[in-house]
Design a protein around this nucleic acid. Structure first.
Lengths: 337, 337
DNA sequence: TTGTAAGCGTTATCAG
DNA sequence: CTGATAACGCTTACAA
């Protein structure tokens, strides 16, 4: 009774003259099987080129050793470093990462969440807090653990491993103000959809208040994500009658766009205007002038997230929220006014 | 007989007072079901919050509407644009993309291939031609169609949608030589593991031969992938007694590293040395000076690959190889010697 | 240590 | 148009 197409457990069992149960054990608990039996089975597996059917396994075992990660975008490497670390850590623990991206669209994120859950993801890694409560209910109902990252909200009860976007930006803004800058601008991603962007915005406002500046004076440019968009927003700011002397950017990608546009306009950064980024992705070092920015511990964040999830799944350890520190990286795009 | 945990087809069937077959039909062929029945079922689905189990579905239907894409790296956005387009196109046709990355390690690629196949990928998108023939045999045995991309080899029989790396680089090198450059260097990724890198290398050599230069005179720096690595290689080249006047780079990431190092060394690009990239990713425009490079039609490549695969899977259309054109983008890092 | 057999949640064939 | 029912390939008590 040889199968025509791809070999199954049964085929292996037949070939090795054992039961399917034994083959299964060989695969999952090798030491629960007698050495010689194991050898026979492994030979059969090799000969047939057998490899287990994931769907069937998932269905029978009711777990997949797979963890889904859903990020807003795969472009521009904003999340790449962190994910890389996450995936490496998971691998160590025998888990596989599945990635999906949403293009910053909540609807798409919901789809992706459902899709990954339907695919049997044992847990999910999501970026930021903000999403329809319905989504969280769904996840809870399905019994899928979720770890949030890239943000840390001390008041939220949801487990997260990230950093305080507001505090980080506030610190940076405080420094900029201390350098004498008074005319400030912020180029930001959509604060309505993106809680990290919103928090960073709040950070700038808070720093202004504390310094006795009127937050209403902040030039605020909200824009889509991308180098072009950053450039366009910067262009609008520079067309203002009373130009800002320091332009914060919600992320390094926008900042690099701003830098490019400054060049196009014949403006010198930082002499004519200072530009400040956020994230410290590789781009920031390569940009010219090298970008002053807020360093996010991408690698550590990914690693710890992987660790937390793996331990939770394997040993049932509860996932404890963890706040990581950011730090200001002074490069060449910021000088006192 | 209500299920305790996540609802199943059976639960829906019970709730709607129909058979599981009918529910399944509602899901897959809505118009093969009477409108009122359909309504009942849909209500039940909504009430229970049912969503189909992917593994079970895959097992029963023997297809997943999922296509796997395996790329060398997710960092630096080299493949990001193309993948994005690929994924968008697939979505249009009702397919889902699953990504995996290999870190440029053949062993890891094999693992990922097996993993995606085990997960039931209906087809695979792979980068480049070069891999163990055993892998191709495995894929064939499993009946999994494969489309290659990011390369185009006219003599290979395997379906691919890409461009001719060698011809592209040769054209660029020809141009550089025509500008009077004689002392040439190439910073390349590992040509042993990476057929795109090897082809680009060959392109430079060929252009030299054609121009009557001795290919053996090419300064060749083979290095790992990354900005740091590009910088280090450039540094070694500049330490040479008889410096090259033009430095080709196997990709934009290496080129940007070279640019950074030039700055660090106090060298002016392009006055002191010309630098040439390959790929034309966003980085190339943002770099300073803006990078002269070979434009790869990322978007079109991804889109067409998605189209070809979707049609093949849906309508059984054969996948025909397609060669896309690259073009030289002259920006600010190359001048005549 | 190994085998038997009952699921796991769908799809799809075949009657009705 | 709808309902039984047999797969699909694997895991896991439970027995031997």
């Amino acid at each position: 009774m040889t199968s025509q197409s791809t070999p199954t457990l049964q085929d292996v069992a037949d070939a090795a003259n054992v039961s399917t149960a034994t083959v299964s054990r060989c695969l999952n608990f090798p030491d629960k099987v007698a050495p010689e039996t194991r050898q026979k089975v492994q030979d059969a597996i090799a000969v047939l080129g057998y490899s287990p059917n994931f769907g069937a396994r998932a269905m029978a075992a009711r777990r997949t050793n797979t963890i889904g990660a859903i990020i807003p975008t795969m472009e521009n490497a904003i999340f790449a470093r962190g994910l890389e670390a996450f995936q490496k850590e998971l691998r160590k623990h025998g888990f596989t990462m599945l990635v999906a991206s949403t293009g910053y669209q909540p609807k798409v994120e919901e789809e992706q969440i459902r899709s990954l859950v339907a695919r049997g993801a044992d847990a999910l890694l999501l970026i930021g807090y903000q999403r329809d409560p319905e989504v969280y209910r769904f996840l809870e109902a399905q019994g899928v653990p979720v770890l949030l990252t890239w943000a840390f909200d001390p008041v939220s009860a949801r487990p997260s491993i990230g950093f305080d976007n507001k505090a980080a930006m506030q610190e940076m803004a405080g420094k900029v103000i201390a350098m004498g800058h008074r005319k400030l601008a912020l180029i930001s991603a959509d604060t309505g959809l993106n809680d990290r962007a919103a928090a960073r915005y709040d950070g700038v406002l808070r720093a202004m208040s504390i310094a006795g500046l009127d937050p209403a004076q902040l030039y605020f440019e909200e824009t889509a994500y991308g180098i072009e968009e950053g450039a366009a927003a910067f262009d609008r700011l520079m067309a203002l009658p009373d130009r800002p002397t320091a332009v914060f950017c919600g992320n390094d990608v926008l900042a690099v766009g701003a830098l490019r546009q400054a060049r196009a306009l014949g403006l010198c950064v930082p002499q004519d205007v200072s530009v400040i980024g956020f994230d410290d992705i590789e781009l920031a070092q390569v940009a010219y002038p090298a970008l002053t920015t807020v360093h996010v511990p991408h690698h550590e964040m990914g690693r710890r997230a992987g660790q937390a999830l793996a331990r939770h799944l394997r040993d049932g350890e509860p996932m404890v929220p963890m706040q990581l520190r950011t730090r200001i990286i002074l490069r060449d795009t910021l000088i006192p006014v």
